[in-house]
């Protein structure tokens, strides 16, 4: 299968008046079309930085990034990036928030608006489309932010702790819904999370980063060998706890080294 995303020796050092911070060091990995990859690592190791660099928001210090086998430096229209904060615009209605990306990219067509309306219905947000963000709960806001990202129909989706504001039950439900959408639409996904179970239940592979400066410590292939795997039945599989233990140990070693 095609490699839609490839990182070659990507490094990043933040420059500031009071010194430099080395955030990423020689990161190498690639993601195949339709694959779901999670990135886990200790807090502050550089996960958000890594996504921002892939998205083109942040300049890398060295290394190369290929999207669809083309070297890319800037913000790519093929990438949808859902940030850690929902950043809904409080002066716009939910509907106008959701079509924000379409508006910016001049793709507010009838067809795309219909797609957005269908997503709103699917996520039980349609009846709130004329309300304002302040009138929504944290979980609802996060779903709105996700729809805003999906609206531009990205080939590659980057998620930064996208579900952290949800309560446990909604979280399990939303992750399943999103998993289904992403697999249906064949969207390639890179997700940063601090939740090991979430990473295992959703991913085809889990990339473990070391503490800062982040390097790729290990890449785990997750294979439950179940047909129609989804985050729900993955959690029930006996292999789940094996994966959990080995990932837990790896992160734990890191924590102790500190």
């Amino acid at each position: 299968m095609r490699e839609v995303l490839k990182l070659e020796n990507v490094s990043k050092t933040y420059q500031a008046k009071n010194g430099e911070i080395e955030a990423l060091k020689n990161i190498n990995f690639s993601v195949k079309e339709g694959e779901f990859v999670s990135i886990i690592g200790p807090s502050g190791c550089g996960k958000s930085t890594l996504l921002s660099i892939i998205a083109g928001l942040e300049k890398k210090s060295s290394g190369k990034i290929y999207i669809d086998e083309i070297e890319t430096e800037n913000i790519s229209s093929k990438i949808g990036y859902m940030l850690q904060k929902d950043s809904l615009l409080e002066w716009r209605t939910i509907y106008n928030n959701v079509i924000f990306g379409l508006e910016i990219t001049h793709r507010k067509t009838k067809e795309n608006e219909k797609y957005v309306k269908d997503l709103l219905k699917k996520y039980n947000l349609y009846e709130f489309k004329d309300k304002y963000p302040a009138q929504l709960s944290g979980g609802m806001r996060q779903r709105v932010a996700l729809i805003r990202t999906l609206a531009i129909r990205p080939e590659i989706l980057l998620l930064d702790e996208a579900f952290s504001a949800l309560d446990y039950q909604t979280r399990i439900m939303v992750t399943k819904d999103i998993y289904d959408i992403l697999k249906n639409e064949n969207i390639t996904t890179v997700m940063v999370t601090h939740d090991i179970s979430e990473a295992i239940s959703m991913s085809d592979r889990v990339i473990v980063l070391s503490k800062r400066p982040a390097t790729v410590k290990k890449i785990h292939k997750i294979n439950f060998e179940i047909e129609n795997k989804d985050p729900m039945n993955a959690r029930k599989s006996p292999k789940f706890s094996n994966y959990f233990d080995s990932l837990w140990k790896e992160l734990d070693v890191d924590a102790k080294e500190k």
Partner: peptide, 27 residues
């Protein structure tokens, strides 16, 4: 202006004029 909002708009490749009219002024 909330830098996270600007970052959000930039993920859609908003140009400076769009940042001004769609984020900075309404905010």
């Amino acid at each position: 202006t909330d830098s996270e909002k600007i970052k959000m708009a930039r993920t859609f490749n908003a140009n400076r004029f769009q940042l001004l009219t769609k984020i900075v002024i309404p905010a």
